[in-house]
């Protein structure tokens, strides 16, 4: 239990830094909003196209914003070499990892909370017809991205070309998550809405998140050994 409490402490530390500067949230949310505006200019906004294209747009926006947030959150630990201090702290490394993942998941959820209404507003997409599954899908997606992302962002901390390598490594690994999220959102927007399919992909996402979490808990310590 203490592992979880320590993790919550690490997460709260990160979030408090963020609450004071609001640097990542503002830039990520601005970036997410910008992507939505670019979409509305890049693609013809027609009702039939919107239903087909909005799921992809949503998840691409979340993926981009998530990568930026991940890079920034770990850069912050690198600037004064505080990552070493964090790893040397008398708490299990699992707590450090979990805390990081939790704080990043919260950030990604915050960005999704900005992007999704903007998409619904600008592109007139009926995303909020049934809000509960949408919220669950977004939260599960954010958890998955934050989880796998923190593992690799922490491993890449000392690598020179980390900004390029992070998305290069992360996107292929996260393909199942993105595809499942897109399928779920697509099924929500379909006419008529297909709740069976929505819940199938939500289950899929849940299993993926659980498997990825178990694996990262298992190998995180071996990956970030200094």
């Amino acid at each position: 239990m203490s592992v979880l409490r320590q993790a919550a402490r690490v997460a709260w530390k990160d979030l408090r830094i963020e609450l004071r500067s609001r640097e990542i949230v503002y830039t990520m949310a601005f970036f997410g909003g910008l992507i939505v505006v670019v979409y509305s200019m890049a693609f013809p906004v027609r009702p039939d196209l919107v239903r087909a294209a909005v799921p992809g747009m949503l998840w691409v926006a979340i993926a981009f914003a998530g990568t930026i947030g991940l890079g920034r959150a770990f850069d912050r630990e690198r600037e004064n070499d505080t990552m070493r201090a964090l790893l040397l702290a008398p708490i299990p490394r699992l707590s450090v990892f979990l805390g990081k993942a939790i704080s990043i998941a919260v950030l990604i959820i915050a960005v999704a909370a900005v992007c999704t209404p903007l998409l619904a507003l600008f592109l007139d997409a009926p995303l909020f017809a049934d809000p509960l599954p949408l919220v669950i899908v977004l939260i599960l997606g954010a958890i998955g991205i934050a989880n796998v992302g923190s593992v690799f962002a922490a491993t890449l901390l000392k690598v020179r070309s980390r900004d390029v390598l992070l998305p290069v490594i992360l996107y292929p690994i996260l393909i199942p998550l993105f595809v499942a999220g897109t399928h779920a959102t697509e099924a929500m927007l379909a006419i008529p809405a297909n709740p069976d399919k929505v819940w199938y992909w939500i289950g899929f996402l849940g299993v993926y998140d659980a498997a990825a979490l178990v694996l990262s808990l298992w190998i995180f310590e071996s990956l970030v050994i200094e």
Binding site: F152, L156, K158, L165, P172, I175, Y208, A212, L223
Partner: peptide, 21 residues
């Protein structure tokens, strides 16, 4: 660079995890 072996190993492990999905 220096942490290449760990990084490649992590990529391989997570990539293999994705196969059944």
């Amino acid at each position: 660079g220096a942490s290449a072996d760990r990084l490649a190993a992590g990529l391989a492990v997570f990539g293999t995890l994705g196969i059944p999905f």
